[in-house]
Amino acid sequence: MNEWILGHYNLWRGLHIIAVVAWMAGMLYLPRLYVYHTTAIPDGELDTNLRVMEAKLLKIIMNPAFVLTWIFGLTLIWVDGQTRGWGFLHQPWMIAKLAGVLFMTGWHHYLAKARKAFAAGQNKRSNKFWRMVNELPAVALIVMVLAVTTEFGAR
């Protein structure tokens, strides 16, 4: 089994990228829905539609993609550790990547909590707030991708 896992690195990498793309799509779209939701009349048609859209986006796309991103990412780390040694975990590029992953994970949970607040009619954040923070996942993505593809600070 270990040999099979080790021998399919490109498969794990491809599946990881697919999962990240799906997760990022949701991470960028859900706050945009919140921008519109802040202007909806409580229990009106828009409010009702956005509640459904937000719940489905989170539960059908974002949550599975989040889990798969972690599974395939940890698989890649394990394969790299087995084949290259574990020293890469201490490289600045990998530390930046892992910090980004932790941020994205925390942001995912924050967005999920916000969805519950919207569903309960208890959102406390403004339209302006959601517009501003909508870009945070994109900034994290840029930092992580550039850190990994350039192996910034590698020795």
Rank of each mutant, 00 (worst) to 15 (best):
R13V: 08
R131D: 07
A99L: 15
L136H: 01
V101D: 07
D43G: 06
E151K: 15
F72Y: 14
A22V: 07
G73E: 02
F72W: 08
M1H: 12
L146E: 02
M104N: 13
I5N: 00
W70L: 15
N134E: 10
R155S: 12
V79M: 03
T149K: 09
N63M: 10
T105Y: 09
S126V: 04
S126L: 02
A96N: 12
N134L: 07
P31G: 02
P42R: 09
R155G: 14
W107Y: 15
E45D: 10
N134C: 13
L57V: 03
T69W: 07
R51M: 10
R13G: 08
L33I: 01
V143H: 00
I41L: 13
R32G: 06
M144L: 05
N49H: 09
P31C: 03
G100L: 05
V148S: 05
L30I: 12
I5E: 05
F72M: 14
T149I: 12
T38R: 07
T150R: 11
G81A: 11
I5V: 14
I95F: 09
L15G: 02
F66H: 11
K116L: 09
H109T: 08
A119E: 10
I142P: 01
T39L: 15
F152W: 14
V21T: 08
G106N: 07
T38C: 08
G121F: 04
T149G: 01
E151F: 04
G153I: 01
W23I: 03
G7I: 06
Y29G: 09
G85C: 06
F118D: 00
T83N: 09
E54W: 03
V20N: 03
A65H: 02
V52D: 15
I60Y: 14
N63I: 10
A154E: 01
A120M: 04
V143I: 15
A96P: 02
H8L: 10
A120F: 05
A55E: 14
M144S: 08
M94H: 14
V21K: 03
E45N: 02
P92K: 06
N134D: 09
K116Q: 13
F88E: 09
A112Y: 00
W4K: 12
L11S: 10
M53V: 11
G7F: 07
E151G: 06
N49D: 12
V52Q: 15
T69M: 12
H8Y: 06
T83D: 04
A55Y: 08
G100V: 00
L141E: 02
F118R: 00
G26Y: 04
H109Y: 15
A117S: 13
A114M: 08
L57C: 03
G14L: 11
M62C: 06
N63R: 12
F66D: 00
A99P: 04
M24H: 02
F129C: 05
V133D: 07
T149D: 00
N127S: 12
